[in-house]
């Protein structure tokens, strides 16, 4: 089966056949979250919460992480903590770990 193979010709390793000149890559970003839905408004975290959608402030609707590593829309959470300063998912006291940007 291999009679026709070109294996006998010496590899031209000294001269590479292909060299990369230019690369236009495409990448996609998303929030680095465990659960991709906001447990408060039940909207996907990559999308603005309904309130921001209707106020067309979708740009500013970012995600917040607590020390417990749970994440929510920042605006949903800031309304939530006014009533109850605990994480809605694990009931631990809520402390902000970081805010997305």
């Amino acid at each position: 089966m291999n009679e026709s193979s070109p294996s006998k010709s010496p590899p031209k390793s000294e001269n590479k056949l292909f060299t990369l000149k230019k690369w236009n890559a495409v990448a996609m970003w998303a929030w680095d979250v465990e659960c991709d839905t906001c447990a408060i408004c039940r909207v996907h975290l990559m999308e603005a919460c309904l309130r921001c959608q209707s106020d067309s402030k979708a740009e500013d609707c970012v995600v917040v992480w607590g020390e417990c590593n749970h994440s929510f829309h920042n605006c949903c959470m800031s309304l939530w903590v006014k009533q109850n300063n605990r994480c809605p998912l694990c009931q631990q006291d809520w402390t902000v770990q970081r805010i997305g940007q």
Binding site: W23, A27, M28, W29
Partner: peptide, 21 residues
């Protein structure tokens, strides 16, 4: 530059220019 994000390469997109001999 951006905290709280993850970035994935979409390998089914994009293009490259190769010099070929």
């Amino acid at each position: 530059k951006h905290s709280g994000r993850k970035l994935d390469l979409l390998v089914n997109q994009g293009y490259a220019e190769l010099n070929a001999y």
